[in-house]
Design a protein around this nucleic acid. Structure first.
Lengths: 205, 205, 205, 205
DNA sequence: CATGAATGAGCATTCATTCAT
DNA sequence: CATGAATGAATGCTCATTCAT
């Protein structure tokens, strides 16, 4: 009887533990999206849950740690998408387009959920989304491999990765601000720019 | 004699006022660079000077206002450089390369002065440098003109501007972190990517 | 046993919360009395307790809110006294005398507790005591009713209420400054003046 | 020639000195009326003039000192009015009515000039007007004399003075808040209350 | 583990006052 | 005397973090 009780207890505890962690993560994602990483406070995050303030510290030691957890989370969700893109891609060009599209689609989805319009951001500040961080290493790895395979000219992979990140971030922002964000167009633009420069970048309709 | 005295007096007063303003601006630039715009506090800025806290408010009304002053400052210094680049450029390609180079050179100079290693940055947050903001509109305008002139294909200028900004920011960062930042190489990479994609991007040596 | 423990725990927690709130209220009363409402700062109030500065904001959102809490408190304590005065009063005259006496007695008690001599007040400024505010509406209501009943001539009730308030405040002050404050005498004076003017105001002994 | 110059200089200086002092006093009166004594800052006062901040301290050492100067000013203007009232008054009753009327008229004039509506005052705080302070001693003296002469019953003069002050202040406020302040009615009410209590206080029309 | 009150450092901003010019 | 920049104490308030329950 005691065992049963204990099992139930631990079962319940386990469930609540996972649920609490999830609640914090969800609230954090929302808060980061709304306020940006810097402006977001731990208080903002816990206010977004039904938990007590102290409880936060049972799960994370700081805002930074939540961010990393979110990034890991994003990586876990992104990895299969990107892997599939890589496996199904007819070419590196194709892969890049799919990768950009995956990211742009992601931020669109994220934003559609939140509904918030993103514009009232603090001036001159941009936060990496956790997903951006997550997708970074994947893409970087693919770049390295492509270079090693000779699919890409032997260029500066660090610069290229940085350029892709920067482009994704900024182009993504511009896309989001538009009335009807067009994920495919943005991805075509970004991958086109990387692969062919302006020469091959698709014209605006 | 009185006149001379007065001139000297007012001259000296003027000088200290200008000097204080300059001290605040310099401290602000350093602080923004070290902590980022959001994380920087007005107190951080005045702590970077020898002035008293209240003195800040004799010169600026807020952090935002210092930032704008810095951006204006940057714009003033950048404008001739970019104008010269535009006037002397043999082609749009040349102009772009020069513009990127100007920006990269700028952040190198800035950083050489400060000496600080840039790494202890707040995680996952990037602030526009005031200079970035300053250079933005200039470049954007050139893009529009180039498109209007037919020097560029009729592509999405908003996307292109965003892409350039993002690339400059991120590639600049990577460059700065290197032992011996190579401005020309970074500029060649960035403008090459924009203009020719990977096809024409210069190989790593 | 667990229940008992919990009760004690929550009991104690509850007690400290109530005690803290009470400590803040008491400190606030003292500070308002010493410095006046305007000159009093939130920091003055918390300095009057053993609590940390931030703790204030766990209980009240502002100085104004503490004042209101004090006024509510005063109202709660005054209401029965004034009600009793009204019920037991042989006449409106009697009621008025009792009401003034209640107020004067109150400020005497208050001041005896605090001990502070009241004189170092900021110059030319008077704050309503929270109790004054509390007693105001009660008296005002009684005045209206008395006028409606015909117990009072049909005079300007706003003026009369204002006059009573002003008199109570100022006469109360004078009384407090005296070596041996005589509540009954002050009340007799005040109610006598209202009801009979100087004609019927009791002579000084 | 030198003499002339000096005379002119000192004449001009004199004029400016007086003018500056007057400018500060006027600004102070306005500011005290708008914000109340406590809330008013020296900065508010000098902002109300065209003088530099430091100049304030060539004329007054503190906010308190300006207030006192205003009170003296008021006293100087009130003295003849009250003296005339005393001399021409047919009775003590008459004098009282005239004194109240003088005060009420004064605050109406003051307020008409400023135009500001007085209501947005800080909660629960009232400042003595400098004029109130000025008129206090005059009235107090008259009360003492009247008692000495036997025109008044031998009552508590301190209480009576306090009561008059309090009434004047509060009734004055109520009067000011009305759409069309009726000085005579307010004065009749106040003096009637003092002299005859409610029995002889004039009915509302 | 959850709770949420307590803590005190920190921040933006205002202010009275001084003093070199 | 007039000026107005400099000063730094003070204020209202928020926040990350701790810890007794």
């Amino acid at each position: 009887m005691q065992d049963v009780a204990n099992i139930e207890l631990s079962g319940k505890r386990e469930r609540t533990k996972v649920a609490n962690r999830q609640a914090i993560l969800m609230a954090a994602r929302r808060v980061f999206a709304e306020l940006g990483y810097e402006a977001a406070s731990v208080r903002d995050i816990i206010r977004g849950t039904e938990l007590a303030s102290g409880t936060f510290y049972n799960y994370f030691r700081s805002k930074e740690e939540v961010f990393e957890a979110l990034a890991d989370d994003g990586a876990r969700r992104f990895k299969p998408v990107l892997r599939q893109a890589r496996d199904h891609a007819a070419s590196f060009e194709d892969y890049l387009q799919r990768a950009f599209a995956a990211y742009f689609q992601f931020i669109v989805d994220e934003n559609r959920i939140e509904g918030k319009p993103v514009d009232e951001r603090r001036p001159h500040v941009r936060s990496d989304t956790p997903e951006m961080v997550a997708v970074f290493s994947e893409v970087r790895q693919s770049l390295d491999e492509a270079i090693a395979r000779g699919d890409l000219p032997h260029i500066d992979a660090d610069f290229l990765a940085a350029a892709c990140i920067g482009m994704a971030q900024e182009v993504g922002m511009v896309m989001l601000r538009r009335a009807r964000p067009d994920v495919e167009a943005a991805a075509a633009f970004a991958s086109g720019l990387v692969l062919g420069g302006l020469a091959r970048t698709p014209r605006k309709d």
